[in-house]
Each structure stands twice: as structure tokens, then as C-alpha cells.
Design a protein around this nucleic acid. Sequence first.
DNA 1: AACATTTTGTTCATTAATAAACAAAATGTT
DNA 2: AACATTTTGTTTATTAATGAACAAAATGTT
Lengths: 223, 223
Amino acid sequence: MMEIKREDRRIRQTKEKLRNALAELMKEKGFESIRIHDLTERADINRGTFYLHYKDKYDLLEQNENEIIQDIVHIHEEAKKTEHAKHPRPPSEPASIFVHLFEYLQENSDFIQVLFGKNGHYSFQTKLKTILRENMLKKFLNAQLEKRMLIPIEYFSSYVISAHLGIIQQWVEGGMKESPKEMALIITRITFHQIIAKEEYPALKFEKPFQKESESMYNERDK
Amino acid sequence: MMEIKREDRRIRQTKEKLRNALAELMKEKGFESIRIHDLTERADINRGTFYLHYKDKYDLLEQNENEIIQDIVHIHEEAKKTEHAKHPRPPSEPASIFVHLFEYLQENSDFIQVLFGKNGHYSFQTKLKTILRENMLKKFLNAQLEKRMLIPIEYFSSYVISAHLGIIQQWVEGGMKESPKEMALIITRITFHQIIAKEEYPALKFEKPFQKESESMYNERDK
DNA sequence: AACATTTTGTTCATTAATAAACAAAATGTT
DNA sequence: AACATTTTGTTTATTAATGAACAAAATGTT
């Protein structure tokens, strides 16, 4: 049984500082013109310390992107364990996976803005999309849901992942004004009212006009 | 010639973290109920590290208060060297001592709010008042201004120092909404239009109605 | 008041970060 | 193109911070 060794706090703090410095500097001047000296000065650490943890600035970016991706995947997997118990869902209750997801995105908002923003980092989004899709495909195949789908699951998972990422991007570009819970509610309603089978995953049928619900949703947001 | 050794950045960072933790916790629960564990947890440092720098929480508070005081005195002394060259002053230009002072107060706003706020730390304010007054008295005596004053300088310096601290406290209690420059302009006008001799420090004469200027000042703030 | 639990203060061995120095590589200037 | 300057990557000795452990002191519970 391997003992899970928590990362020394000094290492954690150094990495956090560098991530923040990277995000700020990327916002200010893009990635390419950033120098190591810029990063270490902004992070208030010694240059040698940078090299204790990262090979170069590309390594810094890649490692941080991968951490974001792993965290998002982890939220996804943790929530999947508890989400099935919560069905049917009251119309004003967001799925907790989405609450956790948006809370996470807000906690890391500086870097998330850099990755998802208008001048966002496309390789990151491609990577994230790919991993989320594979993760989703695997889950479907494990549950043998493919047989119940009216559309091929590759398209379905692409549809859902892209739509979710689109909503995240819109939120980020709009300045992340809505709270994580508000965003979670928005995305829950879109996700579960449109594409879930009556038992669990509905066929893609639009039986109710969406306008009415969209209206009541915005009223709720105004209070 | 003693070499001025800059403080190792690790020490500086540790102290900054502890000051911030102290300020936050004082806001949340006052000083007396704060435990060392609260401080080190909030600051994300090892408990042993706390004791490398401070004897106990009282030492932490006192050292930080003294640093604020020394910094304020230092701003005062630095600005005095350049301020006399700038006379007469255009009505829309704040004295740079006050700009620097309010900038400093804003940079340290968390702790300043704790020290100057409504439930502020009275011993700090007493200490600050005393040191600023002594500093001011010394300067007057050095310049032999006492002979030109219409009132005893102990009273004059108490008047000025208390008035300035009153304004700072008002700003802090109001949420520090005005910018440092705005505050510097307010305090500059009050200070130099009311109490400075025509040549340098005027007698205490109120020749102009203060209302008119107060009005134009607020118009300026609205733009 | 007796006992349990928490907090504090201290010690110690280890680790991560530090600043300085140096050479190589990259960029800037003429 | 030649040279100057800046930036990078690396090495080293030193220092500050770390976590664990322990005893004493303080606080909480009955």
C-alpha cells in the first residue's frame, strides 16, 4: 500500500507563485515574449528555484495545463460517483459536479482566463476536449449505454463536451460575473432537460419550448 | 561604512504572510482569541517558523505596528526633503508626502483597516500620534519656527497630527473608496490653506470662506 | 477537583530555497 | 559582421523553513 506523500508546502507555494506569475504575464504580454527573469521576478523567487521545478517556460506552461486538466477530470470522476443518487432533480438545483467545476474554475480564475479567454491557448482546449471526450466514451462503453443511444456516442460526447466548453468560454469572456452556482444551474438545466433519456438519457426530442424555462431562469438570477 | 544587507526574501515573505494572516484574523475574531495555530495555518507556514521570528502573538502585533509607524515616519522624512521646493502650489496638486502616505496606506490596507478602523487598536494610534508629534516638534525646534508661531508648538503639532489621523480614520471607516491621490489632495488643501504662514506657515487666520473650495473639490471628484 | 484534550514552546535532522558566480547562448547595437 | 549586452542554465555553499517529536502549560469536560 503506497503511502501518499503530501507535497512539501514550500514546493506547493513555489509552484503556485509561478502559476500566478505566468497567468499575469500571459495576460499582459502573451506567452512568447515572457522571459524566465520576468517569471521569477513576478513570483519573487530565485531563478535557480525555477529550474528546480521546471525545465523551461514551456515546461511550466505544459505542467500547469496538465494540472488543470487532471483537476477537471478528477472533479468529473468524483461527482460521477454520487450523481446518480440524485434523480429526479428539482428544477432549481444544480448538479454538484457543475458546482464543483465552476468553483474550481473561479478559484483558479487568473489562469483559467488565460487558457479559456478570447486569446486563449488553443492547444490546451484541444487537449482538454480530447481527454474529456475519451473519459466520457469510456464511461459509456463501460455502462454499455451505446446500445440505447440514438446517435453514435462519439458524436454525442463531442456535442456535450464542446457545448460545455463553449459555455465555460462564454462565462470567462463575460468576466465570470455569474456565481459558480448560477453557472452550474444554467448548465445543469441545459444538459439534463435536453439530452437525458426519460429513464436516464432521453432521445434527442424537444417536447417543451425552451423559452419559458429560459425566462424563469433569468428571473431567478435577478433576485 | 556599514553594508546595508537586504533581508533574505524568504524572511520577508514569511513576515508578510504573517502580517496578512494577523490582519484577516483580527478582522474576523479580534486579537485576543487568535491562537498561534490560527496564524500559522492561515499563513501556510510551519509553527516553528513563527517562533523563528516572533516570541508570541503580542510580539507579532507589536513588531508590525512598529514597522507601520517607522514606514510612516520614513515617508514623512523623505518627503520633507523635497517639499519646500514646491511652493506656491497649484490648487489641484497634492503634496507628494500625502500621495506617498496614502499609497502606502492602501498597499497595506488590510492591516491598516485593523489598526485604524472603528474597532481599531488604540495603543497603536496613541503610539503613532506620540512619535509623529515628537518628530514634528523636533523639526520645528531645529528650524526655530517656534518664534514665528502664534500658538505653542506642542498644541499646534497635536492639532495637525490629530486632524490628519482623523482624516485617515474617516477614509478607512468609509471603505477607502477615494484614491490615494484624491485623499492627498483633500488633506493638502486642508493643511496648507488653513495653517501655513504666508511665507511658509501662516498664522491661524481664516480669511477665505472654506465652503467655496469644498464645493469645487467635490465637483472635481465626480469626474 | 480530577482528568482529558488542546495549545504552546522547543529541539532536531532534513529539505527546499537562496544568492553568487560562471560560462554559454541569445539578442541588441553599430 | 563584429562587438556589447542581456538572458539562460548550471553549480555551489549557505540559510531559512520544514515536519516530527516531546514536554509543559493552558483550556475544556465531567
